[in-house]
Nucleic acid binder design. Structure first.
Length: 591
RNA sequence: GCCCCGGUGGCGCAACGGUAGCGCAGUCGAUUUGUAAUCGACAGGUUAGGGGUUCGACUCCCCUCUGGGGCUCCA
């Protein structure tokens, strides 16, 4: 049985609930401080978040870092003063006059239902419209820290005023806050954009354009290793690997509906022989054409087409981010066409494949969400029901817990989304498994069933890594750049002590390279210490020091990037060690 | 797209409106070294691009491009 790891069940622990109240209270204390320093500030909303809290204000000028210091200093005073939080119910009239000079609060009040009990919370002189809950006393906010200022639209609507948002965080103890801040620093240290440059993996250039990646030799090598493994695994799981072009005729995108529903994410058309073509934002229409290239029998289903397909999508300039959000990326895409009786089995296979793949990359914690039919949807309700049930059933069969996002599916079908949790406990959405009832209809997909009827197949769209670029970024941060041996672009660096050892170093390299390992010799004029330092900073798993003793004995002195000096060993022994460690973690190995 | 903050040799940074410097990396030379930085020299920049203000602009103003933090958490 596969270890599917722990799954987030979504219930709230007492600790989370305490932090929630604490942070909500800290938001009030912050608003109090802001109003003291900026009496003209208009308050918007100030909720707790997963990692802290924020409060939005309408102020005449943006807050500066110095303002934050002052605000924080005032907050500390308020906390030290130990004011109690007092809840108070009010009538709509009372509350409206109380907040008569706070237009955002008035707007919130207007939006509340008549029967709603209106409450305010007070501490010291400060009062805020709020349903709570809060801690008893400001003194309970043991540790607080303001972090950043950012613009944010009122109610998240870009047509409404831009407010100034202050983010902060609060904890029940200084130690907990320090731990959180340390985690933030660690996240910064692991930033894939920094690591990508330091390790020479990829780059982005003004000259090429934003959101477009060029892969350097080492990044390209790692990517190739990922992709080779992906292909091998997909062949093993019964997928046919296909390829499709980067552009397609406008009429194709007309039929698929992309020009109707996805146009704002597509790049402008190009004209070829007086025909309009578009850069592909998705691979599905191409796979569908492969399906349609001949009549299909129920006997040949399921058909599974997989492709590492590069697509281009317009993303608004403000959302681009390193490898995580780009304008050209490669999806590990596949489309499954199957019969009704195969649906549960096919979803199950996708799940098993998913966990095998993610496991190989060191991920063992997931959270799973099933999204069901939204209000506006296309397709036969019976098929919707069957598909949604199949998603549930496949998950349940595997003992996987999951949440339900009622009505959160796409208009064309229900889906499973899987978030993976990385080494720092951060969640990343990668895998998505979606039914599609729209495209089979639009392209008139059929197969002939055992009674000779032309019927529509179920179509499932799935990506496991999501996009290769994004997944690479996640991996880079997950491993902090220290790829496991099977993915390390350079697995060992040979460090000759003096130039007279270069020849022997070359022999060692040959031996290991012939065995299929990626090994380099550092032949520069630096001292050994410098070479080791370089290799450490490049996060190379092994450093092999060779000098007189090693050349004499036919050995290498092995240093591991984490374990340090492991002492001398015969080349053959080291080769064996590498061979064992370089194996791709397989699902079977962990049963 | 919008708000705020940035853009100075490959990278990380400095420079009251008055000669663009430093470190790392690079090249060359010396050194031939035992588990995270040997020494020295050299080379490298129309300060993102364009316009303006000024006797004089990296510095001030405007525009464009581009990077970062946000714009989902609803009293």
């Amino acid at each position: 049985m596969l270890d599917h790891g722990t799954v987030d069940t979504g219930h709230v622990s007492p600790e989370i609930a305490l932090r929630h109240r604490l942070r909500h209270s800290a938001a009030h204390v912050m608003a109090d401080a802001v109003l003291s320093l900026f009496p003209e500030a208009k308050m918007a909303i100030g909720p707790p978040t997963q990692d802290g809290f924020y409060y939005d204000f309408d102020v005449s000028r943006p807050f500066t870092p110095e303002d934050l210091e002052q605000i924080e200093a005032l907050m500390v005073k308020t906390i030290a003063a130990g004011h109690s939080f007092r809840r108070e119910e009010m009538t709509r009239e009372e509350i409206t006059s109380l907040f008569s000079d706070q237009p955002y609060k008035l707007e919130i009040i207007e939006g509340l239902a008549e029967e709603e009990t209106l409450t305010v919370y007070r501490h010291d002189e400060f009062v805020d419209l709020c349903q709570g809950p809060h801690v008893e006393n400001t003194g309970e906010i043991a540790a607080v820290k303001l972090l950043t200022v950012a613009g944010a639209y009122w109610r998240g609507d870009e047509h409404r005023p831009m407010l100034q948002r202050i983010y902060g965080t609060a904890f029940e103890s200084q130690e907990a806050l320090d731990a959180h801040l340390a985690r933030l620093e660690e996240a910064e240290r692991r930033d894939h954009r920094t690591l990508g440059r330091q390790l020479g993996l990829y780059s982005i250039h003004d000259e090429i354009g934003p959101g477009l990646i060029v892969w350097h030799p080492k990044g390209g090598l790692v990517r190739t290793l990922i992709e080779d493994y992906w292909r091998e695994l997909h062949r093993r799981w019964g997928y046919d690997i296909v390829y499709s072009p980067h552009i397609g005729r406008g009429s194709l995108w007309q039929t698929s509906g992309h020009l109707e529903f996805f146009r704002e994410n597509m790049y402008g058309s190009l004209e070829v022989d007086e025909q309009e073509y578009f850069l592909k934002p998705m691979n599905c229409p191409f796979h569908i054409m492969i399906y349609k290239s001949s009549l299909r029998s129920y006997r040949e289903l399921p058909i599974r087409y997989g492709e590492l397909g590069t697509v281009y999508r317009y993303e608004r300039s403000g959302v681009l981010h390193g490898l995580m959000r780009v304008r050209g990326f490669t999806q590990d895409d596949a489309h499954i066409f199957c019969r009704p009786d195969q649906v549960v089995g096919e979803i199950g296979r996708v799940l098993d494949l998913t966990f095998e793949l993610l496991h190989a990359f060191g991920f063992s914690e997931y959270s799973i969400m099933v999204s069901t039919r939204p209000e506006k949807a296309v397709g036969d309700p019976v098929m919707w029901e069957h598909a949604t049930e199949s998603l549930r059933e496949s998950l349940e069969q595997r003992g996987l817990s999951f949440g339900i996002d009622e009505g959160g599916g796409a208009f064309y079908g229900p889906k499973i989304d899987i978030h993976i949790t990385d080494a720092l406990g951060r969640a990343w959405q990668c895998t998505t498994i979606q039914f599609d009832f729209n495209l089979p209809e639009r392209f008139d997909l059929t197969y002939q069933d055992d009674e000779g009827n032309r019927v529509q197949p179920y179509m499932v769209h799935r990506a496991i890594l999501g996009s290769v670029e994004r997944f690479f970024g996640v991996l880079l941060e997950h491993y902090a750049g220290a790829f496991p041996l099977w993915l390390a672009p350079v697995q060992a660096v040979i460090v000759p002590i003096a130039d007279r050892h270069l020849e022997y170093a070359g022999q060692v390299q040959d031996t290991l390279a012939k065995a299929g390992f990626r090994v380099e010799v550092d032949s520069r004029g630096d001292r050994m210490n410098q070479k080791i330092r370089n290799a450490q900073m490049q996060k190379v798993p092994y450093m092999l020091v060779v000098g007189d003793k090693e050349a004499e004995a036919g050995s290498v002195s092995v240093r591991h990037r984490d374990e340090g000096d492991l002492g001398p060993m015969p080349i053959a022994s080291f080769k064996e060690r590498l061979g064992e460690e370089a194996a791709i973690p397989s699902a079977n190995a962990t049963t």
